[in-house]
């Protein structure tokens, strides 16, 4: 990775964190470590985050009522703390998804040379 590229990636990852996490949790409930690894693999490595970014974001979303946490063992010796999406989280995800698509399409046009392209 070129110098400075990691910083750019970090900034962009932070901006899209809430959308990415809600999208993953919407598919199925997830625990923290699973989210950390899935964010990287599901985005082909374009979203690379650390615990110091993921967990505060999870806690903010939990306090905002977008996700809820529960400890479940599911037959394992040690339980995991799973995060699930709430109805409020689904509405938030839809709003973010719409905004993201609008922004991505605008950026795509802009990067391709502007409105005439």
């Amino acid at each position: 990775m070129a110098p400075g590229e990691e910083g750019i990636q970090r900034e962009l990852s932070r901006g899209t964190m809430e959308l990415a996490v809600l999208a993953l949790i919407d598919a199925r409930k997830r625990y923290g470590y699973d989210l950390l690894t899935s964010l990287g693999s599901a985005s082909n490595g374009s979203i690379a985050i650390k615990e110091g970014t993921l967990y505060p974001a999870l806690h903010r979303m939990e306090d905002a009522g977008y996700i809820t946490a529960s400890w479940e063992a599911e037959g394992r010796a040690a339980p995991r703390k799973y995060y699930s999406i709430t109805d409020g989280g689904k509405a938030r995800l839809e709003a973010l998804r719409t905004e993201w698509r609008r922004l991505a399409s605008g950026m795509e046009r802009l990067l391709n040379g502007g409105a005439e392209s």
Binding site: E51, G52, Y55, P56, R60, D63
Partner: peptide, 9 residues
């Protein structure tokens, strides 16, 4: 590590 797991609330 403590910061990472406490922050956000």
């Amino acid at each position: 590590a403590a910061k990472a797991f406490a922050a956000g609330h």
